[in-house]
Structure formats: structure tokens, C-alpha cells
Amino acid sequence: MSWFRSLALLPVASVLLGPFVGNRVAPLVLGMPFLLAWMSLTLVLTSVVMAIVYRLDPANAGPEHAVGE
């Protein structure tokens, strides 16, 4: 697996560990309970990481492969 693809493991680990290590209400983060903020920020992390993966993936370089192998 290319190094940039392994970046996708970061949000995966965050989702799977969050309920165990972040299961509390205080302190409020961004005005939200700690666990809710954790899961929300993980969604943001997912978007950022997948945007990086998309940009660096050679499969997305060159002309688009359209209908009509």
C-alpha cells in the first residue's frame, strides 16, 4: 500500500478508538460533549485525508475514463 493510502487508517483508528478513549462529556469542545466533538472532528479529518489521497493517487491523474477498458 502506498504511503499516502495508509493515511486513510488515521480516521479509521479515530472512529474505532473514540468510543473507548473519548467516552466522556467534559470538557466541552466547540461547545459539544467531548465524544460528540471527537466523532465530528473525525469526519473533518476523514474529508481532509481522503482529499489528500485523491490528489496523490495516480489513478486520478490524466484524462477521465468515461463511459464508452
Binding site: V12, L35, M39, T42
Partner: peptide
Amino acid sequence: AYYMLGYGSLCFI
């Protein structure tokens, strides 16, 4: 209810 945010991350990856 937060589980709904969690699977959003994983399924889009």
C-alpha cells in the same frame, strides 16, 4: 446516537 457520525467516516473511506 453518535454512532451515525462514526459510520459516515468509515463507509466513505
